[in-house]
Amino acid sequence: MSLVKGLVTTMRTAFRRTTTKEYPDVRPELPPRSRGVIALLEENCTSCMLCARECPDWCIYIDSHKETIPAATPGGRERQRNVLDRFDIDFSLCMYCGICIEVCPFDALFWSPQFEYAEFDVRDLLHDKERLGVWMGTVPPPPALDVKAAEPAEIAAARRPPRGTGLVGP
C-alpha cells in the first residue's frame, strides 16, 4: 500500500540527525552579504543627501549645517564643510533594498547581517546616527569574488596611469 511507502520515509527520517537549528541557543551563520541592518560610518558622510533622495520609500532623514573653518595659514582662504546633525533611518519603513548603500559615493553606509533589533514599539525602530554607528562593529568584510569575475572598478582604476601629472614635455 502506498501509505506504507510514506511511513517508511518518515521512519527513516526519524533516525536521522535533525537539521533544525534552535535559534536563540544556536546562532545562525549568515553570509557577509546578508541584509540585516544598515550601518553608518559617520566620518565618511558628507550629508550629500543622495541616499535620502534615492530611497524608494524615503525613510532616511538627514539634517546638516555648514560650518566655516578659519584659514589654516595667514592670508589663506576660509573653507566650509557640512556637519551632520541628524541621520535617521526608519527601519519600520525600510524595504531593505540596499539602494542607499549602492548610491553612497563616499562609502558611509554598509550592510550588516545583524538582525536582532526587534522592538515592542514601532517608533523605536527609528535608528539615529549613534545607533547606526554602533552597527559598524558588526559589518563583515565583503566576500572575495568569483574567479571569473571582472576586476573590481577600484582596482582597475588604480592600475590606470594617473591623469594630469603636471609634467609637460621632456
Binding site: 549568515l30 553570509p31 557577509p32 552579504r33 546578508s34 541584509r35 524595504m95 531593505y96 533594498c97 540596499g98 549602492e102 550592510w111 566576500p143 572575495a144 569574488l145 568569483d146 574567479v147 571569473k148 569575475a149 571582472a150
Partner: peptide, 28 residues
C-alpha cells in the same frame, strides 16, 4: 541564494544591464 544576493525573499540582485555584483568565490 542568500549568499549571492543577500536576501532570502527579496533578492534585489538584478539591475538594468546585468546583476548588482558578481557572485562570491566558490559560490558555484
Amino acid at each position: 541564494m542568500e549568499e549571492a544576493t543577500g536576501g532570502r525573499m527579496h533578492y534585489m540582485f538584478n539591475r538594468v544591464g546585468g546583476l548588482r555584483e558578481d557572485v562570491p568565490a566558490g559560490w558555484t
